[in-house]
């Protein structure tokens, strides 16, 4: 085929729409994103509360078993219990505003963004908690361990863990929130074009 013929084939394309926007599919996509954000937030809360209670339980068991109630361990365990309680209260508060969004496509995406923002905040707070726990744990190892390299290994482990948590925060939580905000922007764009009823 010569190029001129290709040009003719190309020119046969009419200027009519090659695509139509499937509003139902778009709404399903939004609902799916909303549910995913809520599920992720719940999962994260569950893991954090369980881990904190479990770790606190271990510290208490060790203290009772050794009959040695040291102040750093008591403080650390107390912090863990307080944080677990705070997460639980935060979860209850989150559940209470879940139904406060409009029953529209835009309301659904706003709910997903709110859940994602909550998750970002939770992940950020967890990193601070991690740092606190790390400091106590490292101090405790340096106090008890006879060899300095054991303390160094634990310190390195916590540093690596901190960077892994930071990576997770940016890769999953922040990017999910950005993706949802981008969907919202697109929805508004469609609404402005009059293609989709978003409830505005």
């Amino acid at each position: 085929m010569e190029f001129d013929e290709m040009k003719k084939i190309w020119d046969t394309q009419s200027n009519v729409a090659m695509y139509a926007i499937d509003e139902e599919a778009l709404h399903n996509r939004v609902i799916s994103k909303r549910n995913k954000a809520a599920r992720n937030a719940s999962k994260m809360e569950g893991i954090l509360i369980f881990s904190l209670l479990f770790a606190s339980g271990i510290i208490w068991s060790a203290m009772i078993f050794k009959a040695n109630y040291e102040l750093p361990s008591l403080v650390l365990s107390g912090i863990m219990l307080v944080v677990a309680g705070a997460i639980f209260l935060g979860r209850r508060k989150r559940m209470s505003w879940q139904n406060g969004f409009e029953n529209t496509m835009l309301g659904d995406i706003d709910q997903a963004i709110a859940n994602a923002s909550y998750q970002v905040a939770l992940s950020k707070s967890s990193r601070w908690l991690y740092l606190t726990v790390s400091v106590f744990a490292v101090l405790s190892v340096f106090n008890e361990a006879s060899e300095w390299w054991k303390g160094l290994l634990v310190t390195l482990f916590f540093i690596l863990g901190y960077f892994a948590a930071r990576w997770e925060h940016k890769t999953f939580y922040v990017s999910q929130k950005r993706s949802l905000e981008s969907v919202r922007k697109k929805l508004l764009q469609f609404q402005e074009q009059g293609n989709v009823e978003t409830g505005l």
């Binding site: 090659m18 695509y19 139509a20 926007i21 499937d22 599919a25 778009l26 399903n28 996509r29 799916s32 994103k33 995913k36």
Partner: peptide, 9 residues
């Protein structure tokens, strides 16, 4: 879930 089609040819 991202594979839901919104533009239909």
């Amino acid at each position: 879930e991202e594979a839901i089609k919104v533009l239909q040819p």
